[in-house]
Design a protein around this nucleic acid. Structure first.
Lengths: 190, 190, 190, 190
DNA sequence: TATGAATGAGTATTCATTCAT
DNA sequence: GATGAATGAATACTCATTCAT
């Protein structure tokens, strides 16, 4: 009967948090975030019970955004390499298109304020990618290692690739291709 | 700010900073650092004019420490692969042995408080490694990319490797080897 | 502020206020009171125009409750001492039975938020007691003092007595008797 | 070697706390207290680690002040009644002379923020008074009750007396005498 | 030079009250 | 009338930096 909580406001706060935290890091004042979101300082706390809660929700929101993009238009029936290229391309494109989110995700991951449940929940969307990677490595020297090691290798190489693509947009395509081939060689060669 | 009297105190402050920042991040209070270093709050500021200055000096000190280790006993005349393995091994060993410094280095790199001059200066020690990497890639598909891309690939793969070695010490050796072969395949295969 | 629809809700809010303020003092949040009363935050303000108003009404409600109990079954024709014992007994029994209300009454009295009209209005119910006390003191050394001094003496001794009865329930009866005799001696002896 | 902590400042803060809390209660802002004390907001926290600590120290300081006054010029060799009158007189005089401290003491006692150690420590100074009271009651009907009950009776009667003395200064002497005789009758008569 | 007290701007969170639904 | 989201002033406490000793 009362004014309902607004999904728009929640989103606005999360979006503002990305913006402000990209500039200031995890120490970005909640007041600044609220202001940029166009709500009162106190309103932020009706949507997120504390700053930590905001940070955890932000982590999940970015992960969800990323996951959604990566698995959209996923070519389930294509060859392993094609599917891997697809995933790689999506990841890299998302990173290039969302530098702020990427920066904030890195800050959040380092900050120690994202709790285990959030981390676990955030990883679920990427389970499909793990399966894919396992297939890719059937003949590689990495085949005996835990698949999350290979997942981490992919992520980290993609991150480096995105860094260079962003810094030198003119050569973005070359970096994207080179990054993937480095990754593919890394995990498939014996 | 006159020349500080005691090199010992300067080192103690840097060492304390590593300790405290590994736990608290870049927001670690200077007072806490000073206390752990066994000096007064104010004394810290006779050795470092501001917290930013302390952070930059800390960045340089860790880089220097790392560089020193990496190039010690460098086998200048060995084959490219041997030399690369040497560098890789040293890097990884340093990371496993210095988790706090590694964590702080990561925080510092993300923090936006390390200025360009410091970054440039910190990279100098690694110029030799770049040269090495360029030789390694002579026949690879990466040969046309800037050598610092390949440097970044090495660093990032080594970091992931160290993460897993630290988390699963029993399998440390396997990860170290697998990490290197992933790296070597990544940069040498066509 | 229109006439509130439900007397039940008003009572529920006052009862909840007693509960919450006994724990938290006068700084108990209106939101918490409303929640315990089973109404919405805003609803509280349709029954009480402000927190101060709530506090004043609460003061009056507790005073009224106390007065009602004290004068029920009042033995109008008995001897002065018997009547005094009756009043004392009722007061003390009420106090032991209503620790929360007693605590809140004490907080309210100290708080400076109960205004003069409320205080005056709250005292009216006790006028009969004053008359009684005046009779009791006919021969005492206190006979020339304002009767409200003697009333205050009674109240304060009863409060101390209740404190001890509550703290040591096993000896409650002894304290009740000893308290009354201290009071009776205090006001009747020359 | 650094600027020493100043006992004057500590006292100024406590004095300011008395002043401000007498007006506002325990919710008096630390900022207001600091300002009145003539120090910066942060300075208050170098003397008292938290507001709770300040409140506890304030409680102890007032208790100590009161105890000092009550036992000064104590006539150890006089009759029990004379000594009791002395203590009563001192207590009442202190109360009349220190209305703010008295009010704050009452607020503090109710507030739930004074911890047990403080309460215990604050009571020590009054042990001598308890001994005195025990002697006074040798023949009274209260003789079998714990001496702290009688102590509480004295305190509470003195408080009421002070209230009336303060409210009607013209009759202060009469109230003081009447209060004492009420007290004396209360505890000595059989 | 070393010390740590002094400073005051900055920060997360609470809460009485208003008002859109 | 009832609801609870929205508001923003208020508050305890922290911290980099300065400066008296």
């Amino acid at each position: 009967m009362a004014r309902p909580r607004s999904e728009d406001k929640r989103s606005a706060i999360l979006a503002a948090a990305v913006q402000v935290m990209a500039e200031q890091g995890e120490s970005a004042p909640t007041a600044k975030i609220a202001k940029l979101a166009g709500v009162a300082e106190g309103t932020l706390f009706t949507y997120f019970s504390s700053k930590d809660e905001l940070l955890n929700q932000l982590y999940l929101a970015i992960k969800a955004d990323m996951g959604e993009v990566m698995l959209s238009t996923y070519p389930k029936k294509a060859s392993v390499r094609t599917r891997a290229e697809h995933v790689w391309g999506k990841y890299v494109a998302w990173g290039v298109a969302n530098p702020h989110k990427r920066k904030v995700m890195a800050q959040l991951t380092m900050s120690g304020r994202v709790n285990e449940p959030s981390k676990a929940s955030g990883s679920k969307a990427f389970a499909d990618v793990q399966v894919l990677l396992n297939e890719s490595m059937a003949n590689s020297s990495l085949r005996e290692l835990p698949s999350n090691f290979v997942g981490a290798v992919m992520t980290t190489l993609a991150e480096v690739t995105i860094d260079f693509m962003t810094r030198e947009p003119a050569d973005a395509e070359r970096y994207a291709a080179a990054g993937f081939s480095a990754f593919w060689n890394a995990i498939t060669k014996d």
